[in-house]
Design a protein around this nucleic acid. Sequence first.
DNA 1: GATTAATATGTAAGCGCTTACATATTAATC
DNA 2: GATTAATATGTAAGCGCTTACATATTAATC
Lengths: 339, 339
Amino acid sequence: MQNKTPTIADVAEKAEVSTATVSRCLNLPDKVKPEVRERINKAIHDLGYVPSGAARALASRRTYTVGAIVPTIDNSIFSEAIQHLQSGLTQANYTLLLANSGYSLDEELREVKSLLSRGIDGIVLVGEMHHPKVYEAIEQHKIPYVNLWTYNPKSRYSCIGFDHIKAGNQLAQHLLDLGHSKFGIISGFQETNDRALLRFKGIQKTLKAVDLEIPESLIIECRYSVAKANSSLHELLDRDPDITAICCGNDVLAIGALSAARERGISVPDQLSITGFDNMEIIPYLSPALTTVNSPSKRMGSHAAKYLLSHIENKTLDIERIEYTAELIVRETTAKAPK
Amino acid sequence: MQNKTPTIADVAEKAEVSTATVSRCLNLPDKVKPEVRERINKAIHDLGYVPSGAARALASRRTYTVGAIVPTIDNSIFSEAIQHLQSGLTQANYTLLLANSGYSLDEELREVKSLLSRGIDGIVLVGEMHHPKVYEAIEQHKIPYVNLWTYNPKSRYSCIGFDHIKAGNQLAQHLLDLGHSKFGIISGFQETNDRALLRFKGIQKTLKAVDLEIPESLIIECRYSVAKANSSLHELLDRDPDITAICCGNDVLAIGALSAARERGISVPDQLSITGFDNMEIIPYLSPALTTVNSPSKRMGSHAAKYLLSHIENKTLDIERIEYTAELIVRETTAKAPK
DNA sequence: GATTAATATGTAAGCGCTTACATATTAATC
DNA sequence: GATTAATATGTAAGCGCTTACATATTAATC
């Protein structure tokens, strides 16, 4: 038994072929005669040979690795997407390099550079709002790239996602139809989160169409945490007890808001309507079940894998823009506005 | 402007030094004179030079990459841990290679091999139950390794986690103290999940001490999904309507069970006590708030990063076994057993 | 200001693969 | 069974770094 890890040369020697043939046997097996192939495979097995990814990457300029940077992995909706992205990659023998930006554009840029220097074959980012240098750096490396979670037909880049403005429209329209006119917003930070921003814009636009406006004071931006949402609703209701509808940036925030309403003895949806966003797996099983919008996270994740894989294989940098739809799901937390 | 991506040689030429000096400037900056360093940094910046991770890995036998394989990332408790593992790594300029096994030992082995061939500098796995070849493969590569999420003082391997048997004990004792004697179990699949198995064993052992036994028919193993848990509780209650306490394998299952109880008009905790596991962020904000056990996922994740980093830097393979404690958190879903 | 020690830089081999091109082997064709 | 075409294998350079060792430069010591 070798004491150091065996290399392709050891395999070649043992199988009595050249290293080139071993390499072919690994990468293009049908280019080598079956009996030789067998000999090589036996040698590989006997030696416990594992090819060196680094050497392969250096020589072939391919790492079979794809990078993804999400704002946070610690959010079930992103992890669903990643889970599916990952499964798709694994099936094709690719591995996922995962990083998170913590909703910071600068941090995202740093991560992008780090991943790029690791020689990833493709990359997926969330949203369309990035540090300008992000695009620059990626383009220099000439690798497939896609903005996930967002759909913009006019984008200069590939995207796979849905239209957040439309989603906001639907939410607002639903509430309008129920007769609401006094709104409060608990949103994620919009400055570094175009999804949050766009959803809000969608709501705003729909309200404006019927001459409604949400005053600044009834819009709170906060971290996506239940606790923050809880205190935000208290704050909002302190500022204006007449609010009848609260749109939350995602389901987690909505759960926090729900708990605050409960604490105040305000009944949902009779006195107050609350909406979420994402339709996390547990939502329909909660009581009251949230009215929310479905984020097709799993499908987007799988699609991203497919997109990247095909673009890598075909060595193309073609732009594609894929639109998914996000449907409003009306459940138990929205109802007619109280008199 | 170069047309192809610049290499260290281009930087060296531009800065009028040797490639060795550039390399030193990158890796051991204080070994090079400040004015030279400045010249090199300028060249790097002007050229837009990004070092090749593959070449560096091949030459130095270090990838600054750590692998983690979790059963599924799509579970907030794992993603919390990963999030913290990852932050710890990023701070030290390491990157996380993430894979998931889908609770399959064979798939886990495959992933381990794949990660190993990518030359990771360290690896973390969840639980202690792995394919025997997993240990073999990792040991051959001589890299730091830790079993997360589990604590076993007698393990041959490093571990960072808590004692699942104790956790099960606490849960059972709590219910026993409340006078329950008719139990049902909704667990994850125990065959490939030692954490699930151990927790169950803990419950079983505590019950056995007072001569109680849970019949096979009142133990259901299922996937960690709300929907499965929902139908499992219905099943359990159909089999035996006299059950007064249900221990669920995790919070997600407990939420499903809660919803099934609600559907049946069974009030929790008056008629039925339900316990979860993990204490996910949203749990205390739900109504009723679950009685559960806190999994110190964030702390375990951070600790894993620290462990790996220090072992990599010190080139040691010393075994460490770190015990965290998982406390029972009594909330609103457990109460005295009904008469 | 020699001499010695400490520090900074350079030279070149080597990490373990892939792949273009050359050569050997086998199959197809008449 | 020659000749040609197709297929299989081998040779060797090169991917872009790091690092041991050699050499040059600077600082410390008397």
